[in-house]
Design a protein around this nucleic acid. Structure first.
Lengths: 135, 135
DNA sequence: TATAAAAATTGTAATCGTTACAAAATTAAA
DNA sequence: TTTAATTTTGTAACGATTACAATTTTTATA
């Protein structure tokens, strides 16, 4: 458990409960774009009373404070990402794994009168592992 | 009803049933990124027996044949897009409306050993309409 | 420290989009 | 025309998420 996580939450005005710190810690050490289910499975052993509702509440709270990012894949599940630095994602169509990749440079879109606050870039294809299996 | 839609389906080896033609027609005349629910609501009056299962089946079939595209938004609903030309999307965080915008030019990502087959780009922000309301 | 108020967590039930599945209807083939 | 194959349909099941009220925990105040 990282003692620093509590401090970061406190700075954002979020009181650092055991659950919140655990979830924040988890996302700061598992850059695997976990789902709520995965977080629940991994944290349940150490916090037996943990409920999924708390995880949902907490993640929404973190999102509102910009502490984390999220995205939804085509199988209708939300994934959470402790890495809030600009980056893109690659999802393998075969194994489903999601990789972090550098955000490509793009010119700003010309949208007269629109205010742009964010951008999500997703690549699809076959990852190296799966391509090697194919041979 | 566009008589040409049936022909396009036939070319892809898809037998052009009333339902399929109607759904394909719908997507070729409504570039509003509709959900299954919206398609259902709009087509039900003219095809009273239409079921949502058929819409799901049909859209999956069209996707497999590359006739349409789809994407999932953060509210966990799939949107379908009859425009298969390369383009990006902008979603207004206020009203939720999804706009088509030109795909920005990007350099190909350097992913040694990966095969890239597609790319989805999503911008977020406030659309012109909503910005004018804010004043 | 005791007590009251506020905040956070929990479990259950409800919701919503989607999928599974088997029966019925339609279409194509023999 | 009869049979087989395809398509559609309705219902039920499923899985992720949200609503909500009851507990529990924390914080503030006396």
């Amino acid at each position: 458990m990282n003692t620093n996580s509590a401090e970061i939450l406190r700075e954002k005005g979020i009181s650092p409960s055991v659950q919140r710190v655990a979830i924040y810690d988890y996302l700061m050490t598992h850059f695997t774009h976990p789902t709520v289910d995965e977080i629940f499975k991994d944290l349940s052993p150490s916090i037996p009373t943990l409920s999924k509702t708390t995880i949902y509440n907490t993640l929404t709270l973190f999102l509102e404070h910009g502490l984390i990012d999220s995205f939804t894949t085509d199988d209708n599940t939300a994934h959470y990402d402790g890495n809030v630095q600009s980056h893109a994602h690659f999802q393998c169509s075969q194994c489903g794994e999601i990789y972090d990749i550098p955000m490509p440079k793009t010119e700003a879109p010309q949208l007269e009168g629109f205010e742009i606050n964010g951008m999500k870039v997703f690549y699809y294809g076959i990852c190296e592992k799966c391509r090697k299996k194919e041979i």
